[in-house]
Design a binder for these strands. Sequence first.
RNA 1: GCCUUCGUAGUUCAAUGGAUAGAACAGGGCUCUUCUAAGGCCUUGAUGUAGGUUCGAUUCCUACCGAAGGCACCA
Length: 553
Amino acid sequence: MQEKLQKLIEEACHSLGIQNPGIKVRRTEILKMGDYTTFMGSSIQDPQKIVDYIERKKPEFIGRVMYASINNGGFINFYLSPNYYFNKTKQILEEGENYGRSEIHKGKKILVEHSSPNLFKPFHIGHVMNNTIGESINRFARFSGAEVETISYPSDVSLGIGKAVWALMQDGVEKLNEFKTEEEKLNYLGNCYVVGTKAMEEDSSLEPRIREITKIIYEHTESPEYEAYKIGKEINLSYFKSITKSLGSNFDDFIYESEAGKEGEKLVRENTGKIFEESEGAVVYKGEQDGLHTRVFINKEGYPTYEAKDVGLLSLKFSRYNPDLSIFITDHEQSEYFKVVVTAAGKINPIWKEKTIHRTHGRMSFKGQKMSSRLGGVPIASTLIQAVAEEVKEKSPESSEEIQNMIAISALKFTILKSMAGKNINFDPDTSLSFEGDSGPYLQYSTVRSGSVLEKGHVAMQDCKQTETITDVEKYLDRFPEVAEQCISLWEPHHMVGYLLDLAQAFNSWYGRVKIIDPENKDMPYNLAITRAFQITMKNGLYLLGIQTPEKM
RNA sequence: GCCUUCGUAGUUCAAUGGAUAGAACAGGGCUCUUCUAAGGCCUUGAUGUAGGUUCGAUUCCUACCGAAGGCACCA
């Protein structure tokens, strides 16, 4: 549509002898100003003549064209016709869950890595943020026409894990059998991590032993320690899968830190003297040559650091999946770190840098009393979700537990997704997590409401007649595909959140004014069709945010 | 000290260089014998400071003030 209008206006300019008008048609931000608009600079002598030209040629999709004069120029505003919107509604009903699906990355392969956990450490609120943003980007990737592979990068070797395994060995692995549920076993393992860390802090003579265990884990040496580690790793991994599943994620594959470490160490050693250099006994990359800073890739003890592991990860991603685009999501405090790592890795293979996109999420800080006291100041993911679900239960005791969870997760995800990723979030449970106003539940509620209307009336497009007036709901529905494309091209989900709020508001406002199920009203069939189109679009949009829509609420 | 990101209403967030800077929460006032009031309608209130580029700046540039993060073997 934008291209059609662009052509039309260029044609009009040419007919008036203006060769390079340099004007761009774009969407209006305010609905009453029209659907598309373009700014006419003072170089255009007589914009009214352009309007007249278009009025004469007026194709069917244009309702009217207006010139609005302003300071040093003005806008030519295009209003699309009722006929255009009528056909659009029909199109949405036909396309259903494919409405808005894009083809910008058709034929391409995209690799998305997110939610990378630290096994043996609890899945905390930071992981929920990563998962929420990562999952949404993952769904946008799938909506872009690309073939998508989703992976996670669990950290399965570190000194910290060595400490946890040491603590696990103290009481014996058999102790795990005493616990009935997976949750209890997991809590016990989490406790081992704490106990191990504390023990080493208090008694430094334990260090050689813990380093020995870490080495065993790193080298997969057959031993009781390695067996204990494998059991612990399995429990943690299985918990990771189940909690991310409950949040709406599935992973096609994993690349483990232990694998990436070996690959990375090999690559860094091969390129030492070329890309990397030795300095003070360590192998470093001097980032100053690129306006960055120096980082250590292999420490003076000869072990690969996270830097080398991330180089290995990049290498494995491209050798295993050969993606056209590789996106990964981390905490924003790693932004500078990854600039150095990706730049250094790009010197080994330029493709790795060119095709890699790093998106970040901020941190969540807590304030307010209500939720903080319930959480006891520990933002473990499952505890947080449970606490939110409790709030939902108070408000809606008659809903099933499944729906209560859906609403709780939507409230949480909405809070994370509504602002631009990478910015910190001030999480005030008393206000940021309200279920009223701009919120996840508001979007769900609006969708459920449309479903409830549709239960009472049957949608039949063939009974619909074109109306004289155009509702704001139709105008917003028309914009869904381009909002999705905006999110895809920028890899920023928050645009969709703002859009869905506008759409839902338009629907709720319309719902308040117009009785949809009204046999007296000749527009009832078309109003039902709009309602159905609204429901389809909301569901598609919420899907892209990783939010489920309940049947009732 | 250097680098990155960010300062918008009392609060939490929006706004490809364009029209009167949008919402929500909080405050004030309406609205359920009519399809779900987790709703709708009305109302008070904001671009950190000082310059610059531009017909036009929340957006781009410079300085300052403030916040978060990074800067050698932690992740």
